[in-house]
């Protein structure tokens, strides 16, 4: 049985990252932008785990745990901002936030 090449794992991470980037660029709804950021963070974590598995070291998995902490903090603050945006402007359009003053 031939072993799985590392490049295929990194290729999957690159594909998922590109899809997340596309979501950030295309969507105007804040919730979709936050989901796409989650996809990109997850893809970065996948790349770390693949690299850690290549050299049989635990460091890649430690990095994934740190990315998990960053994602959790980012999404909680981001969703609180979404709530504020919707409360004040009654819309989820990110372009509406450019009208804020002060």
């Amino acid at each position: 049985m031939p072993a799985l090449p590392m490049e295929h794992g990194l290729l999957l991470a690159a594909l998922l990252f590109a899809l997340g980037l596309l979501g950030v660029l295309v969507r105007r709804n804040v919730i979709f932008i936050l989901m796409s950021i989650e996809i990109m963070l997850n893809a970065a974590g996948l790349a770390f785990v693949v690299a850690g598995s290549r050299w049989s070291q635990a460091d890649g998995q430690v990095m994934f745990i740190l990315i998990l902490a960053v994602a959790a903090a980012e999404v909680s603050v981001g969703l609180a901002l979404v709530l504020q945006l919707y409360r004040r402007l009654q819309t989820l359009d990110v372009d509406a936030a450019s009208k804020m003053r002060g």
Binding site: A3, P5, E7, L10, A18, L21, L22, R54
Partner: peptide, 29 residues
């Protein structure tokens, strides 16, 4: 955006294709 992202993705795939198939070891961490 889709065109630009696909261009970047093709470059990334090209770079990954340069290195030749490092096999992943089978053990678990």
């Amino acid at each position: 955006p889709i065109t630009l992202t696909i261009i970047l993705l093709i470059e990334l795939i090209y770079i990954l294709g340069q290195s030749g198939g490092d096999p992943l070891p089978a053990g678990t961490i």
